[in-house]
Design a binder for these strands. Sequence first.
RNA 1: UGGGCUGUAGCCAAGUCGGUAAGGCACCAGACUUUGACUCUGGCAUUCGUUGGUUCGAGUCCAGCCAGCCCAGCCA
Length: 553
Amino acid sequence: MPKMHETNSNFIHDIIDRDLESGYVQEIHTRFPPEPNGYLHIGSAKAIWINYMAAKKYGGKFNLRYDDTNPVKEDDEYVRAIEEDLRWLGADPGGGIFYGSDYFDKCYEYAEKLIMDGKAYVCDLSQEQMSEYRGTLTEPGKPSPYRDRSIEKSLDLFRRMKAGEFAEGAKTLRARIDMSSPNMNMRDPVIYRILFAHHHRQGDKWCIYPMYDFAHPIQDALEGITHSLCSIEFENHRPLYDWVTDNIGFEKKPHQYEFARLNMTYTVMSKRYLRKLVETNTVDGWDDPRMPTLCGLRRKGYTPSAIFDFIARNGVSKALSMADVRLLEYCICEELNDTAIRRVAIVEPLKVTVTNYPAGQTEYFTFSNHPKKPELGSRELPFTGELYIEKSDFMAEPVDGFLRLRPNGEVRLMSAYILKCNEVVFDDKGQPCELLCTVDLETRNNKPADGRKVKGTIHWLSAAHTETAEVRYYNQLFNKENVATLLEDDNFDEFIGDDSLVIYGGCKLEPSLGSATTDERFQFVRMGYFIKDSKTDGVFNRISPLKSSFKPE
RNA sequence: UGGGCUGUAGCCAAGUCGGUAAGGCACCAGACUUUGACUCUGGCAUUCGUUGGUUCGAGUCCAGCCAGCCCAGCCA
């Protein structure tokens, strides 16, 4: 799949070009720094793609780094899932796999240095007090009474914090910057806090943990990251990022650049709501095919190349935007149209009896595995007097423009005869349950000799030659395009689409589908793209429908 | 009403030094078609949030205004 290795230029590449030309950097090094507190989603894939492609395009390196500075929110379970998703995407962390927590010793050392340089101090303010002292968006903050504590005192206190002498929340280490800065992040931000928590890698070694704003620039600098690419909500943190690298005095300073995160119609990207969907059993886990998670998309049958193609086509900018999920669907269809093997499946079978076909006779018709790629071969499908066709391919009272089968109408059976419907049998509910038809034996793979035009073509299967399966159609999980802006604490169920999952049982598949594996994607002819579910046997998931220009009315 | 960022078609998004609005998706029309798919052809912004200014000439420069997003966690 060459697509994921192609990228148009964007403003980040312009910055890199500039830095390379000026000689500011010689080699590009980026990283993807997920916090292991949830599963990766398609928005994460954008961050991965931007960082990975920047490194790849310039022959640089790309790291995976677990941002695990807060032990109370992180879990080892997510670490494995993240790496699996990253590797599935094909974004090889050739620069290495790291853990932010591996730098705790270094962070501690730099914190002491800052104290000794008079640039950080231990503060005894409680959380509430600190909030008061911080001021507001429009009013400057005021200095903490502990701000001018002596270096010796702060150093002593900080070491005792580390030794576990103080209760959680009793003290913090703060950077001494500017309490009147219009940027709230610069008003003496906390850089270390006391947390008596077990860390998934460090165990009980620490009871003080660095804050993101302090740890992240250090991690970047230590790994030799040149361009620290993150999403736009960190823009306000950039002055602090620079303050940290400046004041610790790194020789090679990484720089942070921000891009707009990915929003998409009919879904949510926040881990908080995704978790809620899982916990309330609204969906069947993080890998429910309706979820925007990478494991969900994978189970639904999406490919890494289609996902990256979607991200590339959307582009990279700083403008708040809402990507259209239809573009994602377009990307997977475009790829699968090219690569998926064609198969026949009847999702909602309607029985057809061919009254003029000799009872007990079977003949075979050749079906191409891919109409545009003869090199992919073909296979033979049996034809008998008892067939199934798709319910939706027959209308007892056809609407205008309906090209398929109707009473006394004709239709082409794909790769076989022209079929005529002579009689309709209805069930108790008035629904057609069987069609009595005849076949024009002269039209075996030929056009009618009399020149009459038969426009519709439908797919069919011999009733005696099928596998049975369940087929699941997934539609948008939410019924509102901009659902993310409508969600409040507990109202998301009113936005769940009624038809987000539609299950069809008793579907009839052509025999070869009985041996399908869970990583083969098929086009069920005229129906869409499908893949065998990886969790439940005998189930096929619809990856995407085919486009249709048939619009009744 | 403090600061930062953003504003080009229904959606996304290019637009170097100011020179007369790329491309993709969607949509519409037509051709082709034994998948109403695919493919192909054509159409789709006299106008760039807005108002002024500078200029022979402004999406690009300047000033003001408007709108949206982010920031007052010992979260990331």
